[in-house]
């Protein structure tokens, strides 16, 4: 099963790499044209010379071939935007994004599950949790980011409006982006947990357990919750992609260096090597996360492994 999935991931990556290479090639404005437009002293000879130097005079397919061979051999190429090997920009950015995602996911899962359990176990709070969940999901994350900046950075001045720490984790810089990213996901988790819990609570054995004298919270957490965890994990698996998408927006709003911002900047800045690598890496991480969630789900729910 795992082997099959890994193979599938490899195929998707291969297709994706070619598709994005071609697409990025379709983005108008090659770097040399841009340099010429920016610097009046570049003459016609300079243009031809630089185009040959960057290999831009060759057809797209040939360039893709060279690039793909290089990547397979561990040659990731050179970032035009930062003038360093692309890989050396990539890893710190990936780290920063994973920290952001990890925190946001942790908070969202904890908060969402708590809300969901609350909604399911205290019927009176149900509609409120639902309302909060609908609002959270409908809230555009960049708007929430702006509102948080207005409130906490501009009006109150408590937290930085963006950027990242020069050294260390930079907890203060994490708070607002994590909050922004977590809100939408809290809502999703809350909704799905509540739904799953309601189903599980209706099961006959819950009544049996209660009848046997098990206390309310104990039934809830020991018996009902593990059953409800499966659908929640499913959501986690399906949502890995949207979580990463959320990170792109959040990083842009908060000017926080990371994969999302890197992808956006490198596409906008015509940095082929970096854009491609970043895209592929993000896709890979997303697909692996999906796989991991699937595996966890199977481990929890024996019915699925059949």
């Amino acid at each position: 099963m795992i082997l099959g999935r890994l193979l599938q991931i490899a195929i998707v990556l291969g297709l994706l790499s070619f598709a994005s290479y071609a697409l990025i090639g379709l983005i108008p404005g090659d770097p040399i044209d841009l340099a010429i437009a920016g610097d009046p002293r570049l003459g016609p000879e300079d243009a031809a010379r630089m185009r040959a130097l960057h290999g831009l005079d060759r057809p797209l397919a040939a360039r893709y071939g060279t690039w793909a061979m290089g990547v397979l051999q561990g040659e990731f190429g050179y970032s035009r935007l930062f003038a360093v090997p692309a890989a050396s920009v990539l890893w710190p950015a990936l780290g920063s994004t994973l920290v952001l995602l990890g925190c946001a996911l942790g908070i969202a899962a904890a908060g969402g599950i708590a809300l969901g359990v609350l909604a399911a176990s205290r019927p009176r709070s149900g509609p409120w949790v639902d309302a909060v969940a609908v609002l959270g999901q409908a809230m555009p994350s960049f708007w929430l980011g702006i509102l948080l900046i207005i409130l906490f950075a501009v009006t109150l001045g408590w937290l930085p409006a963006g950027g990242s720490a020069d050294e260390g984790l930079g907890l203060r810089f994490l708070v607002l982006p994590v909050a922004t990213l977590a809100v939408a996901n809290i809502a999703a988790y809350a909704r799905h947990t509540a739904a799953a819990m309601r189903v599980a609570l209706a099961e006959p054995w819950v009544r049996t357990a209660r009848a046997k004298g098990a206390s309310g919270p104990r039934v809830l957490w020991r018996h009902v919750f593990p059953n409800a965890a499966v659908p929640v994990l499913t959501i986690a698996a399906l949502d890995a992609g949207s979580l990463v998408s959320g990170a792109v927006v959040t990083e842009t709003v908060f000017a926080r260096p990371g994969m999302g911002k890197l992808i956006y900047d490198s596409i906008m800045g015509n940095d082929y090597n970096l854009a491609l690598l970043a895209l592929l890496l993000v896709a890979l991480v997303t697909m692996l996360a999906t796989l991991a969630a699937d595996l966890a789900q199977r481990a929890l729910d024996p019915r699925l492994s059949a």
Binding site: G29, L34, A37, G38
Partner: peptide, 9 residues
């Protein structure tokens, strides 16, 4: 980058 590198030049 489109304006200068393509449309204008």
């Amino acid at each position: 980058r489109v304006l200068f590198a393509e449309t204008m030049s």
